[in-house]
Amino acid sequence: MSLPYSKLLEAAFGSFNLDWSTEWSPTPKNLPLLRLPFFALLEVFKNLDPNELFILSQCSRKAAGCIHIVGSKKWRLTVNAGQRTIKVNNNYELDIIEKLPKPPWEYNEELRKFFRNDESVENGKLELHEVLSQVQAVFRCPVTSFEYNGYCYNDRCCFSTLKHITQTQTQPLESLYLYGYLKTEYLEWVFQNVKVTQRVNITLLGVNRFSSDLQSKCERLDFMTLNSCKYIELTLSSVTIHGLNVFMKEWKTGSYPNLQYLLIRRCYLSWVDKILGFDRDDLKQLGLRRRLVIDERSVECTGGVDIQADNGTEATMQWSSDMFRNDCTLGAECRNDYL
């Protein structure tokens, strides 16, 4: 008489093969993870944090191949090429630790500075690139933010990673943060190839000699890859008052429809210069801290003026002849808030 009920169970909820006597049968100390039913395996994965899942993925290709069932395609990666870290969901951090000898210091003629030349260390530059490839293969999620904050001259590592990102995913970056001494050839490539949808913050130290084409683009702030950005913060010595004026007029007529905040540093205005009728005191940092809310995330700015475009949208425009914010920690806090 037990059969009908059993049949009823099977008919109602499908047939299950609970054969536990396999070669992977558990022992008192071991449990065959990949022999668990799908939903149980999913539950185990859900209870592991991204770092634990990545370590688990290193056990075998088979293990690595099933981790994405946890829904990791929706996760977001932040790559910091300067610190050689990869953050998952801006919370779980993978640090890439170099096991290589320290690179030598070398003098760079172009920038007239001494740098720790990481490029001279064989394979050192590839570690971040390789780990990122593995993380992307395991989680199958996009890189949404890229940061490079380096005084070291390891920008080859930085740009090989950035190149890898733009070549392997169709989704543009949400934010790009570059700070430091950067080679001109790499910068030119960034301006021409890296599309960013929300926030760009580029601060160049030293003096870059761009090609004439890029020089004119920098002077006019003419970067098509940035035209859908909401937040642009640039420290480029090559921006001219004429270029800024042209940019502002273009913005006013709707060429940068999403822009909500623009900060240009290291741009020198005289007391007679005017941009859209505003003089330098109106546009420069006024020392008034306020929080702008962009995409439900707050960004702190220290001044500027709110200007309305022809289509009614409003943006905060700020100009500064200074290299840095008045309060450097504010910049970091602001960046972390936004990313």
Binding site: N30, L34, I55, L56, C59, S60, K62, A63
Partner: peptide
């Protein structure tokens, strides 16, 4: 990873 292979009986 080596310890996980043993705990979870994951073949290499």
């Amino acid at each position: 990873p080596a310890q996980l292979r043993r705990v979870y009986l994951l073949p290499s």
